[in-house]
Design a protein around this nucleic acid. Structure first.
Lengths: 195, 195
DNA sequence: GTGTCAATTGACACAGTGTAAAGTCAACGG
DNA sequence: CCGTTGACTTTACACTGTGTCAATTGACAC
């Protein structure tokens, strides 16, 4: 079942991806995914031990396809703390819509499923490190107007998926407005006013 | 089944309340609730048409017990826009922890259940009106640094339950720190600097 | 007593997950 | 050309949880 790259496995992952994306959070049934992938329901269990692990694998597959690591790595290149903050907000903020469908499913499952909770927690912790790094860079520039921990907490919350969901999905903000406003709030609350 | 005040109905609601509170989001089973209420599983269906409606009723029961309407009404009394903003943040922000357990359940169910989604949406819309009113009061004072809609959207997001959850449950902020910081962010981002 | 109402008991249909066993089919190696 | 292997299918089933139904009990009211 494990880390193979068999074509069937990929087809299943792709089917799950599409279904979750078209209906965020609703968590398609195994039979739906099988149907979409053009395989039997049982074939799913040949590649993944259970439903949760299939969705976890879908998440990891997305990260691999999109190359998050590289994207986030790029934001580390920025010279000043302020530039780094902006770069991080832009990269992560623009990554969210790409993964939202699948991510939301995991987020919802997290409440009832330990494995989903673990993986989701790790993922959010990774993102938090990016926040911490940006905050640290600001601090080194003497531009941080809060203690590091609180600043990291705030930035993390500001860039959380529920925040993105509220603003873009419920309030109807465009992706550009979202990025611009989050960036502005981050500056106003985290960064010292003058220079 | 409907809007009676039979003692059994109340006991069921109380049992559901306690179970949801002790395990936010996990959504207890009907049999668990029945057991806790000291009543047969079938008795639940004599009072509520299904699981979702039971949870919805639990939410409404909480609102009734706590008297949200009165609490929020009090914040309308404030004289200036700034005072009103602070009052609203304090009232709503301190209400969240009281309802979190049950609310989170509804929030999670919202993804898969239309009725839950509807009720949850209404509830959030009610809260939004409080945000809009505070923003309008600021605007009347000429103290608003954003257009009304954007300001309402932002305040609404800032005061959303996921934001509270991230800061207090995941980051470990105290309720006091939460209120203080949210208040500060709201001022920095919504209210004009000087006077 | 009889009616009625609230609740119980036990049974069942249904959906969805996960397991198990047997069968099919194509590829590959002797 | 045969036999094996591996991936997948088919069928069946156990299990959990929701919701429905019918028959029964017990109390209280008139």
């Amino acid at each position: 079942m494990s880390s193979e790259n068999s074509p069937t496995r990929i087809r299943i992952l792709k089917a799950a991806w599409e279904l979750l994306e078209s209906n965020p959070g609703v968590a398609a049934r195994m039979s739906d995914i099988a149907k979409k992938a053009g395989v039997s329901r049982q074939a799913l269990y040949l590649h993944f031990p259970n439903r949760t692990e299939l969705f976890i694998a879908t998440t990891k597959h997305q990260d691999e396809m999109f190359g998050v690591q590289e994207m986030l790595g790029a934001s580390r290149a920025a010279a000043t703390g302020r530039e780094r903050l902006d770069a991080f907000i832009e990269v992560w903020g623009n990554y969210i819509p790409k993964i939202f469908g699948v991510a939301k499913t995991l987020m919802v499952m997290q409440a009832t499923d330990e494995d989903a909770a673990r993986v989701w927690g790790e993922r959010m912790q990774d993102m938090r490190e990016g926040c911490a790094a940006a905050v640290a860079a600001l601090d080194r520039d003497g531009a941080l107007s809060l203690d590091r921990d609180s600043a990291t907490d705030l930035l993390w919350t500001l860039l959380s998926i529920p925040t993105w969901e509220t603003l873009t999905q419920m309030c109807g903000w465009s992706q550009e407005k979202y990025i611009a406003q989050i960036s502005e709030i981050a500056h106003k609350t985290l960064v010292k006013p003058a220079g």
